[in-house]
Design a protein around this nucleic acid. Structure first.
Lengths: 199, 199
DNA sequence: GAATGCGGAGAACGACCGTTCTCCACTCTG
DNA sequence: CAGAGTGGAGAACGGTCGTTCTCCGCATTC
């Protein structure tokens, strides 16, 4: 829980608070108290609140990429790897603390007022799109497929967040299956590639 | 531009400001000045800022429904009506002022702190899902198709907003075409829509 | 013309924001 | 033990927020 690095500890705490209630709803004093550091130390670690926000987003980006990559790498076939993303989403949506994509939320709250936050969201989404595009290319799918799968993932996140229910992940997965099947029809319909044995 | 109803005029102005910069970034004094009303009058029209936010969302909900409905009704076949939604999105994304879905933005900014805002977003999205589900049913499509098409629309909105480019609408449309085609295979590609399943 | 009420302009208010500063207990070093 | 320096607690600061209040010009009415 508490890491050895005080900086990381502050970022973890800030992430939890910002994500749960919004950035502007959490004051520096509350963050200081929750993180158990003095205000002086807080400002010694970070020059401003905005820098904390950016550090939180950077951490979220890293954790997201690790989580997706780990889940994808657990699948063996190129096709299963494409769909693994939605299983990752399903697990995420089922968490009690789930409240949508932190980048979308931050973009909506601060994107118009902080170019750096907007840019962080842009880079994060772009990075995911590139990753999926690489998966599609490896699987031998057409270039169109990547963006379409990403749009499904984005839509599932906001839908699940606002509805407060996790079923959007499964719906997006089924849609993705259709798109993948249509874009990359398997030569053998019986499908020797169908080894849906996970973990 | 300026409506006869001062209340509506305030809501229009608030919508423009809130949408462009975020709710919390716009103070009541700035809104008062932009709308050209006195602070006293502003608080005579609305008891609090939150009520203005809710009125803005209600107006946005109405305009969105009218816009989508008008666009859908311009199409003649049930299949074209399903895809008309994405053409509407394409036009919207191309607007200079486009900055994502106002409900998603408001939810990200205030959803955790204002149950009423969260509920407004939920109702709005749910209403759209019901509308699409009705279109799907009329077209004779399976129940699964509606949520999938909605997820594509949601994903296109956030993708276009964060990327700052409108191409997500076309990508979502192409994906939707595939989903529709897979779920409702036309016997002849020329398309006899009359041969759909009856109610 | 005097009384009355309405609405506009904007000052005032209390709260809270992000950030800085003051003060002091404490721990090292000699 | 004396002195220096570090870091914690939290007060202070300037600013802004949402909201309320005061003041005053002005139109209406008897």
């Amino acid at each position: 829980m508490d890491s050895t690095d005080p900086r990381e500890h502050v970022v973890e705490t800030a992430d939890r608070l910002f994500y749960a209630r919004g950035v502007q709803a959490v004051g520096m004093d509350e963050l200081r108290q929750a993180a158990g550091v003095s205000l002086k130390r807080l400002y010694a670690l970070f020059p401003s609140k905005e820098e904390i926000v950016l550090a939180v987003l950077a951490r979220r980006h890293r954790l997201w990429e690790e989580g997706v990559r780990e889940r994808v790498d657990r699948s063996d076939t190129p096709r299963a790897r494409l769909l693994a993303v939605y299983d990752h989403l399903a697990d995420w949506f089922a968490e009690d603390s789930f409240r949508g994509c932190g980048f979308i939320n931050a973009f909506g709250e601060l994107g118009a007022v902080s170019p750096q936050v907007a840019e962080a969201a842009r880079v994060h989404k772009r990075s995911f799109q590139d990753y999926v595009a690489a998966l599609v290319e490896t699987a031998g799918g057409p270039a169109d497929l990547g963006p379409q799968l990403c749009i499904l993932a984005e839509g599932a996140q906001t839908t699940a967040a606002i509805a407060g229910t996790p079923e959007a992940a499964a719906q997006a997965r089924r849609a993705a299956e259709v798109l993948v099947q249509a874009a990359m029809p398997s030569e053998r319909s019986g499908g020797g590639a169908q080894r849906t044995r996970d973990a």
